[in-house]
């Protein structure tokens, strides 16, 4: 006997993501899902972004990590509310994990929630967390072939932060080719060239983010 099913494999996650999205919307919180390889500089970009937004945007952070709370401890030093999620081996965050973390925040006093995903270019993209925007962090030292090798992240992201631009001259990266590849995959994506180490370009990215936050009605 054949049973027709036609049910999405991720439907349970999607239902939870819808709840998270509703919660963000009700509280006027803009949420981003920060993704990229291990070592791309997600946490360092975030630290510099927090510094820049200090006093202008009220933000909180959810840190995703497989086992440790190293990143959450780094963020704590900036005096912003932070919750650590340890996935215990899983290579991505899912909407249920984020829902659990959200219950620990007072969302009414927030403008922006940054969810830093587990370092990985593949798996996290498939799991909607309820965010408003996916943001990719790609360090130029990873090589200019990465967008074409992992297109889904770039297709789904609203912006890509090209990090480690301060050491461009020490790499063989074809920056124009890299920008073109990203735009072929997603013509609407914003590209920010930054160095989290020197602070170069953080202002442009943070201003763009601030504009998105302001568009979110309180």
């Amino acid at each position: 006997m054949e049973i027709k099913v036609n049910t999405g494999i991720l439907s349970a996650n999607e239902q939870k993501a819808v709840e998270n999205r509703k919660l963000f919307k009700e509280n006027g919180v803009f949420a981003i899902n920060l993704m990229g390889s291990p070592g791309a500089g997600k946490t360092t970009v975030l630290e510099k972004t927090i510094d820049y937004l200090s006093g202008k945007v009220r933000l909180a952070v959810i840190e995703g990590d497989i086992y440790t709370s190293k990143d959450a401890r780094r963020i704590e030093k900036y005096g912003v509310p932070v919750e650590q999620i340890n996935t215990g081996g899983a290579c991505h965050l899912d909407a249920k994990m984020v829902s659990g973390a959200l219950s620990k925040f007072d969302l009414t006093g927030l403008d922006l929630m940054v969810i830093e995903n587990v370092g990985n270019l593949v798996c996290p993209v498939e799991f909607d967390l309820g965010e408003d925007q996916k943001i990719a962090v790609l360090s130029i030292t990873e090589g200019d072939d990465k967008p074409m090798k992992y297109p889904l992240l770039f297709r789904e992201s609203g912006a890509v932060i090209l990090n480690k631009m301060d050491i461009l001259d020490f790499t063989d990266v074809d920056l124009e080719g890299l920008r073109k590849d990203i735009h072929i995959i997603n013509p609407d994506i914003k590209i920010f060239e930054v160095s989290a180490r020197t602070g170069q370009g953080i202002d442009q990215w943070a201003e763009w983010l601030t504009d998105r936050v302001k568009d979110t009605v309180k």
Partner: peptide, 20 residues
């Protein structure tokens, strides 16, 4: 031009089961 919208390729679902 670069503006292409997806028609298919993002599907991920259970279509059917056979039980005996």
């Amino acid at each position: 031009s670069f503006g292409m919208e997806l028609i298919s390729g993002r599907e991920l679902y259970v279509e059917s089961l056979e039980v005996e």
